[in-house]
Computed example of a mutant assay.
Amino acid sequence: MKTYYRDFLIRDWEPRDRVNAAEVIGSVLSEYGLTWEPRRADRDVVDVETFYQTVGGEFWVIEYQGKVVGTSAYYPIERGKNAVEIRKMYLLPEFRGQGLGKFLLQQLEETIANRGFQEIWIETASALKEAIQLYESSGYQPTTGVETKRCDRVYVKQL
């Protein structure tokens, strides 16, 4: 994956991004009063190779002027019908409100659909109000079955 949105480069994660991606995610979680959990909910960021690359998922970073300012990812999951879960959609606060999140979600959906998946699941926390608004306005339906301790909401969308 390599595409642009305005002055932002969206590209595949590389091992050199490990620390920067983790810092972005940790910073955004902290902003919302949530905790970075490298041994639990965020272990996939510490080991992108195992959690995404070897199972047919993708992890993208968003760069602005050479600096990682956001992340987004998905991987196949067992629940649902031929399903994936979108994970780690985070943007630093100064880069929100420009349509980038909506563009990222559309790019993820298009990529996922082109790969033949039929359902997308997303888990999130109520504190992430902007994310919830984005998901709901993009056709994601609330459902049940949260699996991540830090999250209290789960959504699904049929493709």
Rank of each mutant, 00 (worst) to 15 (best):
R18Q: 15
R18W: 05
V19P: 01
A21M: 13
A21Q: 04
A21R: 00
E23K: 06
I25S: 11
I25E: 03
I25V: 12
G26D: 15
V28S: 11
V28P: 06
S30W: 00
G33Q: 06
G33V: 10
L34S: 07
T35C: 13
T35A: 14
T35R: 15
W36S: 03
E37N: 14
R39T: 11
R39N: 12
R39L: 12
R40L: 14
A41R: 05
A41E: 10
D42G: 05
R43M: 14
R43D: 08
D44M: 09
V46F: 09
D47Q: 15
T50G: 07
T54C: 03
T54P: 00
T54I: 09
G56A: 12
G57I: 01
G57D: 06
E58N: 05
E58H: 09
W60C: 11
E63Q: 12
Y64W: 06
Q65N: 06
Q65E: 14
Q65V: 02
G66A: 05
K67D: 12
K67T: 10
K67F: 11
V68L: 10
V68P: 04
V69Q: 06
V69L: 14
G70D: 02
S72C: 14
S72L: 01
S72H: 01
Y75R: 09
Y75L: 03
P76R: 08
P76D: 09
I77G: 10
R79E: 10
R79T: 10
R79F: 01
G80F: 03
G80Q: 08
K81W: 04
K81S: 11
N82Q: 04
A83I: 04
V84N: 06
E85A: 10
R87Y: 03
M89Q: 05
M89R: 01
M89C: 05
M89L: 13
Y90M: 06
Y90L: 11
L91F: 00
L92F: 02
P93V: 11
P93C: 10
P93Q: 15
E94L: 08
F95G: 09
F95Y: 15
F95M: 06
F95L: 04
R96Y: 04
R96L: 12
G97F: 09
G97I: 13
Q98M: 15
Q98V: 10
G99D: 07
F103E: 13
L105I: 05
Q106F: 08
Q106I: 04
Q106W: 01
Q107V: 02
E109V: 05
E109P: 00
E109C: 04
E109Q: 10
E110V: 02
T111K: 03
T111I: 04
A113G: 02
N114S: 13
Q118I: 03
E119L: 12
E119R: 10
I120H: 03
I120P: 00
W121D: 01
W121I: 03
W121H: 04
E123T: 08
T124D: 05
T124L: 08
A125Q: 13
A125E: 14
S126P: 01
A127G: 01
A127Q: 11
A127D: 02
